[in-house]
Design a protein around this nucleic acid. Structure first.
Lengths: 196, 196
DNA sequence: CTTTTTTAATTAGGCGCCTAATTGTCAGCC
DNA sequence: GGCTGACAATTAGGCGCCTAATTAAAAAAG
């Protein structure tokens, strides 16, 4: 999540000091904000670092995961373990599930296909569709990576007990809810909507 | 923090189910992990969205902030409100403070200078140095953006009370500590950094 | 049936981030 | 003096992400 966050966060006293010049600055809110992005960045780097060893990135890994989750239940009736519909997925479905644009997904699939991890097929029923399938090589890669990936996640969260984990999830979701309400382009100011 | 995280996180039951196939998967750890990255991503998008309206990005904003914090105290003795040494900063100092490589910083300064927000100067004492200074235009931009930026942060964190904010910061720091120990540069013994 | 609209995927072009290699400068040592 | 190593900044090339424009095909409207 390379987003240029400060390596060394300002101390809380600095935020208090800065708030004197900026009445809109809420020191404790800013502190949570900075720590959230800083920690997210660091955790992101740790897992991405692991992917790099296998020639992947977070984005490429995400695509393979979605495909693996989808195709694991192929032929079986339900998708209990994957919570995803079975069968190959289209670039549009992958983009929506991953939260990136379709143009971005095209690029990801391009390189994944070039490296032999996935394969584009054609849908006879609708020739606009280009369903994507995992190749055996891609399946092997994801299965090789996953155990280590899970161990890393477990290690990173290892200092939190179950109660703390529940608390984290609850508070993160509160923030996510608030942020999601502000995502649609210009809901910037608190409460005022001046669209023409 | 565009890192391709799942738009809809797997439900906890799905993680439990998946753990049957992967003994290394710790469901509650994975849940915190997914929520952390998802929330970080969303918050990142909200603030970045605001920057975009002013023709900035998170990275460009970060550089301007560092320069503003540094130059605000120029001439005065201390840097209480900024916690940064006064005067212009070199690309290397900016890169270290921002947590990006020097090559990345060169690119950021390139576009910021092209747009007239900063200016490269030359250091007569050491001609390798190219200290960067904020232009009046750059200073005006950052001062125009900051109030809205602070209001957005305040709004995003608005649903957390002071106790919850303290808890978040404490738990995030626990995670950050663990994660920092797993980054390769410091993870190896002796903490020496061979980058560059 | 033909035209228009919608939709899937891609292309084109830009920025931010990276690593590796390069250029220019300083500093130490013969 | 001249050589060598360290360091600042940059360049070159790649990936991931974006928006806007394009192409092709299906669906809807006349």
């Amino acid at each position: 999540m390379p987003f240029l966050m400060l390596k060394d966060l300002p101390r809380y006293e600095c935020l208090l000091e800065a708030a004197k010049k900026f009445p809109d600055l809420d020191p404790s809110a800013a502190e949570v904000f900075l720590n959230l992005l800083r920690t997210g960045d660091e955790v992101f780097r740790v897992v991405e670092n692991n992917f790099t060893k296998h020639g992947l990135s977070q984005g490429r890994f995400g695509v393979l995961m979605l495909l693996a989750r989808s195709s694991r239940t192929e032929g079986e009736g339900k998708s209990e373990a994957t919570c995803l519909p079975p069968g190959p997925l289209t670039p549009a479905e992958l983009a929506d599930a991953a939260g990136v644009t379709r143009a971005t997904m095209t690029g990801l699939i391009d390189t994944l296909e070039r490296d032999g991890f996935v394969k584009r097929e054609s849908d006879p029923a609708d020739r606009r569709m280009m369903p994507v399938k995992l190749t055996p090589k891609g399946r092997k890669l994801i299965e090789d990576i996953l155990p280590g990936h899970f161990r890393i996640i477990s290690a990173v969260m290892g200092s939190l007990n179950e109660t703390e984990r529940k608390t984290m999830v609850r508070l993160l979701n509160k923030i996510l809810q608030q942020a999601s309400g502000l995502t649609p382009s210009e809901a910037a100011h608190s409460g005022h909507d001046h669209r023409n």
